[in-house]
């Protein structure tokens, strides 16, 4: 059998681990705003505490057929399939920036529907496959 000393150590460790998990959970819950890397268009429209000159990131999918190039400026729409925000960006976009793919834009809101980006990041999803397989998948869609 376990000795008394060992039993007391188990109890002590168990109680402190449970206490620590609760504390960590509460900390992360209250910091949620800062832990998320970007907001979706729906969250942006819902949020009331966003000021126009505050730097934020919004993320979602680049809407199909929404990319328009005008000289150096790229205009496109970020969507989360519920709400949309128009984004304008001055500069080079990453190679993987494409319609229907994930994107994150960093910059400032002009208003709730128009975003001026200073930086564009392409977001990659969790699917990996050879080009031939993708072609077959696209055909079957």
């Amino acid at each position: 059998m376990l000795s008394k000393k060992v039993k007391s150590r188990i109890t002590f460790l168990f109680v402190s681990l449970v206490a620590a998990s609760i504390i960590i959970f509460i900390i992360f819950k209250s910091l949620e705003e800062n832990v998320v890397y970007f907001f979706s268009p729906t969250e942006i429209i819902k949020k009331t505490d966003i000021t126009i000159d505050k730097k934020i990131r919004i993320g979602g999918l680049v809407k199909e057929k929404s990319i328009k190039k005008d000289g150096k400026t790229t205009l496109f729409i970020i969507t989360d399939l519920k709400k949309e925000i128009i984004v304008s960006y001055n500069g080079l976009v990453p190679n993987l920036f494409a319609e229907g793919k994930g994107v994150i834009a960093e910059g400032k809101l002009r208003d709730k529907k128009y975003f001026i980006a200073e930086k564009i990041l392409a977001k990659h999803d969790e699917n990996y496959m050879p080009p031939e397989v993708n072609k077959i998948l696209e055909k079957s869609d």
Binding site: V35, V36, Y37, G59, K123, D125, E126
Partner: peptide, 10 residues
């Protein structure tokens, strides 16, 4: 749990 730039597990 959170929005991240890193993709979810494959």
């Amino acid at each position: 749990w959170w929005n991240t730039l890193h993709q979810t597990s494959s």
